[in-house]
Design a binder for these strands. Sequence first.
DNA 1: AAATGCTCCGAGAACGTTGCCGGTAACGCT
DNA 2: AGCGTTACCGGCAACGTTCTCGGAGCATTT
Lengths: 339, 339
Amino acid sequence: MQKQTTIKDIALALKVSTSTVSRALRDASDIKPETKEAVKRLAEELDYHPNRLALSLQNRQTNCIGVIIPNLDYVLATMVKGIDEVALGAGYTVMVCQSDESFGREITNTKRLMDSLVDGFIVSVSSETKVYEHLKKIEAKDTPLVMFDRIVPQLQVPKVRLDNRQGGIIATQHLIDQGYKKIAILAGPANLNISNKRLLGYTDTLKENNLKVNKQFIIHCDFNQDYAYEATKELLAMKNRPDAIFTISDRMAIGAMLAIKEKGLRMPEDIGLVGFNNEPITNLVTPKITSIEMFAFEMGKTAAKIFIERLHSTEDMSGEEIVMQPKLVVRESSKRFIT
Amino acid sequence: MQKQTTIKDIALALKVSTSTVSRALRDASDIKPETKEAVKRLAEELDYHPNRLALSLQNRQTNCIGVIIPNLDYVLATMVKGIDEVALGAGYTVMVCQSDESFGREITNTKRLMDSLVDGFIVSVSSETKVYEHLKKIEAKDTPLVMFDRIVPQLQVPKVRLDNRQGGIIATQHLIDQGYKKIAILAGPANLNISNKRLLGYTDTLKENNLKVNKQFIIHCDFNQDYAYEATKELLAMKNRPDAIFTISDRMAIGAMLAIKEKGLRMPEDIGLVGFNNEPITNLVTPKITSIEMFAFEMGKTAAKIFIERLHSTEDMSGEEIVMQPKLVVRESSKRFIT
DNA sequence: AAATGCTCCGAGAACGTTGCCGGTAACGCT
DNA sequence: AGCGTTACCGGCAACGTTCTCGGAGCATTT
C-alpha cells in the first residue's frame, strides 16, 4: 500500500548505517551532534515516522489496551471515556470492541486481540457470558486482565466494580422509607453478577425490615426497555399488584414507566419507581425517575489506572478489588413524603 | 511479557523447518498430509496463535480500521455499531478513538494510528476542526480515508453523509405547514458542514415560502444541552419572540424544551419545536419531540462498506459521495393541525 | 539408461526496528 | 613508545512470519 519512509532510506541518503540513524532519532548517546542534526533534519523533511509494528514486534509490547464491552450505551460509553482519558495520558491507545451482548462475539474479539495486538485487556462481560474459559486463557498467558462493572467474581484478576448490593439496599430502603410495602424488582439477566448482587441487596433489605420476599415480584429479564415494559405489564395485572418497582437499570425503568402510564397509574402516588445508573434521561422524563448514581466516568478511569499499575508491577495484584459506593438520587417517581 | 508459542517451537519439536510448519498451518500445497496433520495437532496442543504483528509487518497490512469520532453519544455510538458490524464481517478490527470534540486530540489520534497501526481511516471530524492538514496527510500517504456524517467537502475522499440541507428543508417546511411564522434555528458550530447545510435548508425554505430570514433568529452554539438552554432563554426573552424553534440536534432540543417549559409556554400551542437525529429520548419526554431520522446505523454500515471497497479497489474513488435521505418524524412538539 | 516430472521440504531473505558487540580513530597519560 | 580512554559508528542478530528459490528423492517417460 503506502510506501513508508524508513530508517533505511535516511541511512542510505546520508551514507551512514541504520544503527546511527536509529541512535540519532532516539536521542541516544554515542552520536556526534552534527550527525544527529543531519539525521533529524532529513527525517523531518521526509516526514519519517517510526513503524510501530516493527517496534512492537521487537520489544513485545504494543502500547495498546483491548477494551471489551457488551455495548455502547450511555453508561459504558461514559466508562470508555474514562478509560480513554487515562490511557491516552499514559501513552496507550485503546481498542474498543463491542460484543453486542453476544458471547460468541466476545470470544471472537478477545481471540483476535490476543494475537499480539494488545498488551492486555479491560473487560466487562456480555449478558450471555456464563463460562469464562476465554478470560482464564488470557491470564494463563500472563496477559494482564482487569475487569470492571460486570465482573466475574470467581476469576482471580484485579477488579473495579460498584457495591451493587449496597445499591440494591439503598434503593429498596428508600422505597420502604417512602411507605411502599409491596416492592417488586426487575432484575437483569440471572447469570450476571451485578444483577444478583443488586437483587441480594433488595431481598436483604426486605428481610431487614420484616417484609416478605415475594417470589412473584422478582423478575429476571434482559437490560431492555421492551422486556421491562412487558414484565411490568404482567406485574401490574396481578390481583395483588406491587406498589413499587425497583429496576436494575434506567432503560428498564423507562420501560416500566411506559407500562405504568399506560395502565393509568400515577407515580409516586399509586406506585413508586426507582431505576439504576442515573442516566440523564431520568431527569428529563415525567415524572423524573429516582435512580442510583454509579460514577461511570470515575469507574472507567480507575479501571485504566489499575490496568496500567498491573502492567508495570511485578507483584501479584489478582486480589485487588476496588469497590465504589453508589449514591441515591431521589426524584419525583418515588418521593411521597417530604423528608 | 507472555511467552508466546511460535512457529519455531513447533518446528523444533517436530524436527522440521519453520517453512514446513508455516505451510501446514496455511493449508498450502506442497505438503505431505501426515506432516500437515502432525503440525496441526501440535499447534492445537500448544495453543498456537499466529503473531499478527509479524504478519502485518510482512505483508504491510494490519486488518485494522481506525475510526476517529468526536464523541460517543447516541448517534455516533449507533454509527460505530454499524461500522463494527460490517468490519467484523470483512475480517477487520476497528480501533475507535474519540477526539472528545478536541482538535488536538483528533491530531494525536490520527498521528498515533498512522504509524502503521491501521490500514486506513473512517473519520468524522470534531467541532473544533477548522484546518485539515492531518487529514490531507493521510491521503497523501495513500492511506485510504473515508469520511462520514461530519464530512469536509473540500477534501477529495469518499464520503457518506446525510442530505443535511434536505433535513433543514423538511424540518422548516413542516413547521411552516403547521402555521408557525417566526421560526428560529439553533444551528451547531459555525465551522461544521452539517450545521451550515441544515441552516441553508432552513433559510432556503423560509425564502421559498416568502418568509423573512431574521438574523436574530439564527444562533450558532455547541451541540450541548446547556448552551441550547441558554440560547433559548435569550430567544424567548425577545420582545418579538419566535413561535417555533428548529434545533440541529436532539440534545439541543432537550435544552430548548427545558427553557420553554420554564418560561411556562406550551408546545405545540404557543411554540413549536423540532429536533434532529430522532434519538429515543424524543419519544420519551413530554411533549414528545418531532425530529429528523438520519439512519445512523445504516450510515455506519455504508461508511464501512465504502471503506473496504476503497481498500481493495485500485480505481480512483475520491469523487464517491453517498448521500442518505433524512425522514421527518412528527410528534407532539410541533403538531398543531391534524393532517 | 538418461531425461523429465512430481512431491515434499529446507535455507535464506525480507518486513522495520533496536540491542549488543566490536572496531577505528584521536587523544592524553605514564 | 606504548597504553588506556573516549567518541563515534557499522555489522549482525533478533522479533515471528511468509515467500522465493533450490534441491533431494522417487517414479515415470522416451
